[in-house]
Nucleic acid binder design. Structure first.
Length: 549
RNA sequence: GGCCCCGUGGUCAAGCGGUUAAGACAUCGCCCUUUCACGGCGGAGACAUGGGUUCGAUUCCCGUCGGGGUCACCA
């Protein structure tokens, strides 16, 4: 009995690995092209950190005329959720991330290096596991969970490094005949990698982001094929990224500690290892300190949050790019109108330490992004958002399309566009007073300086009787406001008032505030003249009369 | 606990042996023909700490402290 026979006994139907090597040949790509992949587990929503990685993957492949793959790592069936793949595909799609290859729906995929769901690659992994057994680099292990726990307890008690290695690797040196015997007897087993590493020796590795790192060699005989016949992450990573001809593995830095293992695996399998880039974890400020942003505590960890809040995808991507490359901001300032696809991302410029997620900054980025949108686009996007999250707003927008676009167009499209909207969920509050169906319910007028009812009535009636003309141009309108102020004993100019406050009841600003509040119910609004033009004569009368009578 | 990584203003960050230590967000003040938003100008605010190396350290080395990651038949 030899390794070959043992391998045949364990995986009798596995194909020769040559078959797969030929089936998935080296890619024919231009020099420097990067093949990247985003490989999440279908265990729930896409995480902000995952999106970050996916953006980097997508851009890098694009920039180098390479390939970006979406692979699903569903080897843990316990954790898998219903329609998990679809959630990921859609989650990425919402941010404009479309893979060149890999999963494109729950079950749909494209590309010739598939299948792209690991659960469907079982035979491939087994073929490679078999090849390892044949070479004496993997072996069956018959330990039960209880036995493993026992070993661990012993190690902990003796204060030595825990794990399945060296003398603790119970079945590592089991004679082949005995192993075969056990298998024939139907004993349960898994397949372990036979490590030849030595903890005393160091290995050096250069990570694209982290730079040179040195750690002890791996000596753990990790499991490569689980009881259900599926591979563990480590083994699948080696097999898949080799067979899919991935050149650059970009993943979260929770993986750095397994570099020694992965490198050893690639070597044992005879694969050329990919280049690694380990990205820092996105953190969350937590009273004073910082911690990893968490799915449970932080709603903003799920990318669906941004969709629900109505933060445009462009803004989220720009913000993340901001974190990724510090030269993004200067680039954006110099190229205000270019699409982000024009920005060249540099992998080695990514930060080694984790950034604290800054919602305020994101919202600022978003304000700027939205300020560049046309009123039509804002209308469309807000309507799309409202259809899902705010039916009242949806109705308002649908029933008054042209009007709404006019409203949204106030102070927009000029050199210094309005920057008051950071997300679609804010739109309603900023425009609702422009709609009679909502304004008619307005009970509260927040007057500022002038609160005397008689004075307010006086100002409004005098304005209507004597000064108001919807056909006035802006300058005339403005001058009339000053005339009104003067007549009522207020300063024409704010400066005049400030110089001699005792001489006046107030200034023109106080007068216009009364009109603004009468018309909109609030004292902070965009340009009053434009608002009045859109409101029109009739509604101006009617809104003012509310307060005069 | 072992191993690994990280530590510049509140946050994101340039700088990488000699700088008045950039910039952005946030914050404060002033200005911008009336509010808000925008814009302009200005202010406050940082090299975790102790030792080295060096003519000179934010930059290099070591220790300390602090933060994070990882030690599964999870990824």
């Amino acid at each position: 009995m030899d390794y070959k026979e043992l391998a045949d006994l364990i995986f009798p139907n596995a194909k020769d690995i040559e078959y797969y090597e030929e089936k998935y040949p080296e890619r024919n790509l231009p020099e420097g092209a990067m093949v990247t992949r985003f490989a999440p587990s279908p265990t729930g929503f896409v995480h902000i950190g995952g999106l970050f990685g996916a953006i980097v993957d997508r851009k890098l492949a694009e920039q180098t005329k390479g390939v970006f793959i979406l692979r699903i790592e569903d080897t843990d069936q316990k954790r898998e959720i219903e329609r998990g793949t679809e959630q990921i595909v859609e989650g990425l799609q919402n941010f404009g991330i479309i893979p060149d290859e890999g999963m494109i729906s729950e079950d749909g995929e494209k590309g010739i290096y598939g299948p792209y769901k690991q659960s469907q690659r079982k035979d491939i992994y087994q073929a490679y596991a078999k090849s390892l057994i044949e070479k004496g680099l993997a072996y069956p292990c018959f330990c039960t969970t209880e036995e493993l726990e026992e070993i661990r307890e012993k190690q902990e008690k003796a204060k030595i490094r825990p794990g399945y290695y060296g003398v603790w690797a119970k079945y590592r040196n089991l004679p082949i005949v005995e192993a075969a015997e056990k298998i024939k007897n139907g004993e349960k087993y898994i397949v372990r990698f036979k490590s030849h590493g030595n903890e005393e020796r160091k290995i050096k590795h250069k990570d694209i982001i982290k730079g040179n790192i040195e750690f002890p060699e791996n000596d753990q005989d990790i499991v490569i094929i689980k009881a259900d016949g599926l591979p563990t992450y480590h083994f699948a990573h080696a097999v898949d990224d080799h067979l899919m001809r991935v050149t650059h593995v970009i993943r979260g830095d929770e993986w750095v500690s397994s570099i020694p293992l992965h490198l050893e695996l690639f070597k044992a399998l005879g694969f050329k290892p990919p280049k690694y880039a380990h990205t820092a974890t996105i953190m969350k400020e937590d009273n004073g300190g910082k911690r990893k942003i968490s799915k449970r505590k932080d709603p903003e960890a799920a990318v669906s949050y941004y969709h629900e809040e109505g933060i445009p995808q462009e803004a989220v991507v720009e913000y993340l790019l901001n974190i990724a490359n510090s030269n993004f901001e200067p680039w954006r300032r110099a190229n205000k109108d270019l699409d982000i696809s024009e920005f060249e991302l540099q992998l080695n410029k990514l930060s080694v330490s984790g950034a604290v997620f800054d919602m305020v900054k994101l919202l600022d980025v978003s304000k700027n992004v939205i300020s560049k949108f046309t009123a039509e686009k804002i209308y469309d996007e807000t309507l799309k958002w409202a259809k899902q999250y705010d039916t009242e707003l949806m109705k308002l927008l649908e029933e008054n399309k042209e009007y709404s676009i006019r409203v949204l167009n106030i102070e927009r499209g000029n050199v210094k566009p309005r920057k008051d909207i950071a997300k679609w969920s804010e739109v309603k509050n900023s425009i609702e007073y422009m709609y009679d169906e909502i304004f008619k319910n307005n009970k509260e007028y927040e007057f500022q300086k002038i609160t005397d009812k008689e004075e307010i009535k006086n100002i409004l009636s005098k304005y209507i009787e004597k000064h108001f003309d919807i056909n006035d141009d802006k300058q005339t309108w403005f001058n009339k406001m000053k005339d009104l102020a003067e007549e009522m004993g207020y300063a024409r100019e704010v400066k005049e008032y400030k110089q001699e406050p005792d001489k006046y009841k107030g200034h023109v600003g106080d007068i216009s505030t009364v009109i603004r509040v009468a018309l909109t119910g609030r004292c902070n609004t965009p340009d009053l003249y434009e608002i009045m033009q859109i409101l029109g004569k009739e509604r101006i009368y009617s809104r003012m009369n509310n307060l005069i009578q």
